[in-house]
C-alpha cells in the first residue's frame, strides 16, 4: 500500500466511522449526533464515566475503536434504545447497552475497512470500563490514532480510533 493509498484510506475511514456513529445512534438510540472535530492530538486523553473498547484485527493490521461517554449521556442513549426512562435503567443494562452500541459502530467500521482493503478483519467482544472520570490512557505503541469529537444533543462524547497496517 502506497502512502497516497494509506492517506485516502484514512479519509475514507474517518467518513465511514463518523457515518457509523451517526447512523447507529440515530437509528437505534434515537439521538441526533453531529461530528464537531477530528484531530490527532497526542496531549489529550479522553475522560469519561463509561467507555467501551473493541479491538479490530486482521492480516492487514490491527487497531481499536473506543468511545467515552459521561454517565447522563450514556444513560439517555441506552434508555432510548430500550424505550424506557433513564431513571428506570439499571447500571448493568447501561453498561451492556453502551457495549452493544459500540459493537454496532465497530461492526460497520470493520465492514468499511474490509471493503476498502479487500481483506477480512475480526472484531473482539466489547470491553466496558466504568468509573467516574476515568481516562483511557493506553494506546498501542507507534500506532497512529485519531480523536473524533461528537455532539449528542448538547453533550460531548469522544471516539478514539487507532489502526496500524502491517506493512
Amino acid at each position: 500500500m502506497t502512502a497516497t493509498q494509506a492517506q485516502a484510506l484514512d479519509a475514507k475511514m474517518v467518513n465511514a466511522i463518523s457515518s457509523s456513529v451517526m447512523e447507529v445512534l440515530s437509528s437505534m438510540a434515537n439521538t441526533n449526533v453531529t461530528l464537531k472535530s477530528v484531530n490527532a492530538r497526542t496531549d489529550y486523553t479522553p475522560i469519561g464515566d463509561i467507555s467501551a473498547i473493541i479491538g479490530i484485527m486482521g492480516e492487514s493490521g490491527e487497531g481499536m475503536v473506543g468511545l467515552c461517554f459521561n454517565s447522563p449521556l450514556a444513560k439517555m442513549m441506552v434508555a432510548r434504545l430500550l424505550g424506557i426512562e433513564p431513571a428506570d435503567l439499571s447500571d448493568d443494562d447501561c453498561c451492556d447497552g453502551i457495549g452493544e452500541l459500540v459493537n454496532m459502530i465497530s461492526g460497520r467500521s470493520k465492514t468499511a475497512l474490509s471493503e476498502n482493503t479487500g481483506q477480512p478483519f475480526r472484531m473482539s467482544l466489547p470491553t466496558i470500563i466504568k468509573g467516574k472520570g476515568h481516562e483511557i490512557a493506553s494506546r498501542p505503541k507507534n500506532t497512529p490514532y485519531l480523536l473524533m469529537f461528537f455532539d449528542a444533543e448538547g453533550q460531548e462524547f469522544v471516539l478514539q480510533v487507532s489502526f496500524k497496517f502491517s506493512n
Partner: peptide, 12 residues
C-alpha cells in the same frame, strides 16, 4: 445474543 439489552430490543 450475548447482550441482554439487544435481546430486550429484539423481544420488544
Amino acid at each position: 445474543d450475548d447482550s441482554a439489552v439487544m435481546r430486550k430490543v429484539i423481544i420488544s
